[in-house]
């Protein structure tokens, strides 16, 4: 434990400050300075050079009437709903693995789940791009082979959409209407290795006696999940929720690589982070990009605070 020092000892220990200085310098330069600079420049018309002009709150006024930005918040809201839904398979899988009677199999499955982690995220992303490819991709081939295509075409004709056609491959990433569905399918079956592992860690604390008691009372598998397993992993579920909110709101790498700087055809995949990137590095409006960053920061921060307040994580 750290403890207070006498004056005399302090004189001897001053060298210890040198231990924290390198870290501090790094953090000040590469984290605090850019953050402060972002706040400062969000009030300027700045295209990255020496010349900049103070324009007060104009960047923020512009942001609140910027239809692209406002739509991007709608899109990211939809992605958030998708991601909430995508949490379910990991929870189910963790419960299934936990309910197995054999320890050896539990270990085998845990190891198998970690295997996809050895693939760099970027490669996973590109493989998914390949799966969604209209001509060669696995998804379209599966849809054709199982006859699902004619069902889709029938639905399409019934509702009068012009999305699916007989004999034309489905362009998941090139048709504006299909961008959001494609982002939903992305990552199927939505198993998050880290998620499953932390849920399993939470489930570990359930003793066999509880299961036996439940069995004697004739409680079915579904009720077991609701009354025994879910309460125990609620802490972990809430934690994943917080991480998910931060990650989804701030993330834009997926959209940038899967689509492009403009959020794909029709800009349907545009998210706030990507719009910030776009304004900064494509349009060169660095001041405005900083302002978007600020707005995003405030949104993320307030959601995190709400989360900490109303979604308690008991330890």
């Amino acid at each position: 434990m750290a403890f207070p020092l006498s004056r005399q000892k302090l004189l001897r220990e001053w060298r210890l400050y040198f231990f924290v200085v390198p870290s501090l310098v790094m953090v000040l330069t590469f984290a605090y300075f850019p953050a402060a600079s972002a706040v400062y420049h969000s009030f300027f018309d700045w295209s990255g050079g020496e010349a900049k002009q103070y324009i007060g709150l104009d960047n923020f006024k512009r942001a609140f009437t910027d239809s692209t930005l406002l739509n991007s918040f709608v899109t990211v809201g939809a992605l958030m709903v998708f991601n909430l839904f995508k949490m379910i398979p990991s929870i189910l899988l963790a419960v299934l693995i936990h309910r197995l009677f054999s320890d050896r199999w539990q270990y085998v499955y845990r190891a198998l789940l970690v295997v996809p982690m050895i693939v760099p995220q970027l490669v996973t992303l590109f493989i998914w791009k390949f799966i969604l490819d209209p001509n060669l991709g696995a998804l379209n081939r599966v849809i054709e082979a199982t006859g699902l295509k004619s069902v889709l075409v029938a639905i399409n004709d019934f509702f009068g959409w012009s999305v699916f056609f007989e004999g034309v491959p489905i362009g998941w990433l090139s048709q504006p209407e299909l961008i959001l569905p494609a982002l939903f399918i992305w990552g199927f079956p939505w198993i998050g290795t880290v998620g499953v592992l932390i849920y399993l860690a939470g489930l570990q604390s359930i003793s066999t006696e509880i299961y036996e008691a439940a069995e004697l009372d004739g409680i079915g598998p579904f009720k077991k999940f609701i009354y025994i397993e879910l309460p125990l992993i609620l802490t972990q579920v809430r934690l994943s929720l917080v991480l998910l909110i931060i990650g989804t709101l701030g993330g834009y790498g997926l959209q940038l690589l899967l689509l492009n700087e403009y959020g794909g055809p029709g800009g349907r995949g545009m998210v706030p982070g990507l719009w910030m990137y776009n304004r900064g590095f494509v349009a060169g409006e660095f001041g405005y990009a900083c302002a978007i960053g600020m707005i995003l920061f405030v949104v993320i921060l307030s959601l995190t605070i709400i989360n900490n307040r109303y979604v308690r994580v008991e330890k």
Binding site: F33, A35, A38, Y252, G273, G293
Partner: peptide, 22 residues
């Protein structure tokens, strides 16, 4: 001073960070 950094999301930083490195 270190802990507050945990609250700063990296996204807002990327533009000024680029200028700093420049």
């Amino acid at each position: 001073a270190f802990l507050i950094l945990m609250l700063l999301p990296g996204v807002a930083n990327i533009v000024p960070l680029f200028m700093l490195l420049k």
